[in-house]
Write a protein that binds this DNA or RNA. Structure first.
Length: 421
RNA sequence: GUGGGUGUAGCUCAGGUGGUUAGAGCGCCAGGUUGUGGCCCUGGAGGCCGUGGGUUCAAGUCCCAUCACUCACCCCA
């Protein structure tokens, strides 16, 4: 036997009926909500020039430094599979929309993203995101509207057990000031920090704030607070966001230690987390990125967006709460060739029914046909063999009740229509 | 990249301190029941015990390596 080819590590086939239905219903719900909020779908390529992500996501981020699927094409150009959605949407926005007088746009997307990481619960190399990007305004009301949209989506899916954390990172100047203050503070107290965190001190002091090292907690607790370094304009923006959220009835917690891993965020950032998701607690996250459009070569256009992790969300949703509707299953069992031809000729009409219909081709025994019907989950079996042929009738079996009746051929479609409602 | 756990039948898993022909449940196939699924009974197929090497008279079992899966760190959705 030749070597079995398997799916790539961290990439999954999704095929079982129930999970697929859950995905479909999430996607449908998202579309419906987003469209009503004035967003239009955008589908960008999965592959982009590597430089887009380097400049967009940030060259020193974890994602770009060691998690990208990067390769050369036949022309020796460096390409990468997208590790996230925002950079591509911004690129497309600059390419197609910024020549208008009004530089605005509301977009949503859904699709696979790729990061070369070691897989674990809630983390994959190919994973799927649903995201939203909104260009053109820097208003706290919009920040709240975007958060509300995401909150609404999660609630409409009957997701329980999640909470919203928000924070403001301030503008880049505020952040610079804060960063140096933070660095100074941790350097002073370096003896009390854990080994791990000493390394972070060099690379990215912000990360020490959400360190889980027990040893460091005390120092972290007394570290300078980002909120003290926000400019008054940023402070009032953040307060306004909170007030708008209250108006909208969206519960939230301010977490002044929350920092996010992508470089482009500033001002409002937020994260939806779940307590019963294992170590990967973030279901969705996002924030404002007012300078990204410009730094990718576009005009100055403020923007805000979020991304939602499909796999994580799906793992939290129980299929029965989504009340997935399933169609009646009708199985056609033909016992001779004449009956096969008859069922075949019937297909154009049976496919009009709001039912799942399946013809069992081939000359296996009735017993094995019945077995197949049961295994498939058929609720009804339409049976035809030689004697039915001669009498011009069919047998309709109710699999659940284990009863059956003879019906005239002419009545079949009416009867099927009735049972599939 | 680092650490832990697990790899035995299609699936879920048993197989003290090495010992002769590797098991169970479920599933699958056939028959009991000639044209009727589930329940029951009988029978059957299906295993290089992840892979490679080593120790031993003897390895599913011990040792080393390697691969895969999985959880966790890091980071993120």
């Amino acid at each position: 036997m030749s070597q079995k080819i398997r799916a790539i590590k961290g990439m999954e086939d999704l095929f079982a009926t129930k999970p697929v239905q859950v995905w479909q219903s999430i996607e449908a719900q998202a579309r419906s909500l987003f469209e009503r909020a004035g967003f239009q779908e955008i589908r960008t390529p999965i592959v982009e020039e590597t430089a887009l992500f380097e400049r967009g996501v940030g060259e020193t981020t974890e994602i770009v430094e060691k998690e990208m699927y990067t390769f050369k094409d036949r022309n020796d150009k460096s390409l990468s599979l997208r590790p996230e959605g925002t950079a591509s949407v911004v690129r497309a926005f600059i390419e197609h929309f910024t020549d208008h007088q009004i530089q605005e746009g509301r977009f949503y997307y859904m699709g696979p993203m790729f990061r070369y990481e070691n897989p674990q619960k809630g983390r994959y190399r190919q994973f799927h995101q649903i995201g939203v990007e909104c260009f053109g305004q820097d208003h706290p009301g919009l920040d709240a509207e975007i958060i509300f949209l995401l909150d609404q989506l999660l609630r409409s899916l009957h997701l329980n057990q999640f909470e919203l954390k928000i924070n403001s990172l301030g503008s880049s100047e505020c952040r610079q000031n804060y960063l140096s203050a933070l660095k100074e503070y941790f350097t002073e107290h370096r003896s009390q920090l854990a080994e791990e965190d000493l390394q972070r001190l060099e690379r990215n002091p912000l990360r020490i704030l959400d360190s889980k090292e027990p040893q460091s907690q005390e120092v972290i607790g007394q570290a300078p607070d980002l909120s003290d370094y926000l400019s008054s304009e940023n402070q009032s923006h953040f307060l306004a966001v909170q007030n708008f959220l209250k108006n909208l009835g969206v519960p939230f917690q301010v977490d002044s230690r929350m920092v996010r891993g992508l470089d482009y965020y500033e001002k409002t950032v937020f994260e939806f987390i779940s307590t019963d998701l294992g170590a990967q607690s973030a279901i969705a996250g996002g924030g404002r990125y007012n300078r990204l459009v410009k730094s990718l070569g576009g005009p100055v256009v403020p923007a805000i967006g979020f991304a939602l992790g499909m796999e994580r969300l799906v793992s939290l949703l129980s299929a029965d709460r989504l009340n997935l509707k399933s169609l009646t299953k009708i199985f056609f069992a033909a016992l001779d060739e004449e009956s096969e031809k008859y069922f075949s000729a019937l297909l154009p009409q049976t496919r009009q029914l709001s039912a799942v219909t399946q013809v069992d081709w081939g000359s296996s025994s009735l017993k094995s046909k019945m077995k197949r019907a049961a295994r498939w989950g058929a609720e009804w079996v339409v049976l035809s063999g030689e004697s039915e042929q001669q009498k011009g009738v069919l047998i309709l079996r109710d699999m659940k009740a284990s009863t059956q009746e003879e019906i005239a051929r002419e009545q079949l479609l009416d009867v099927l229509k009735r049972i599939s409602e």
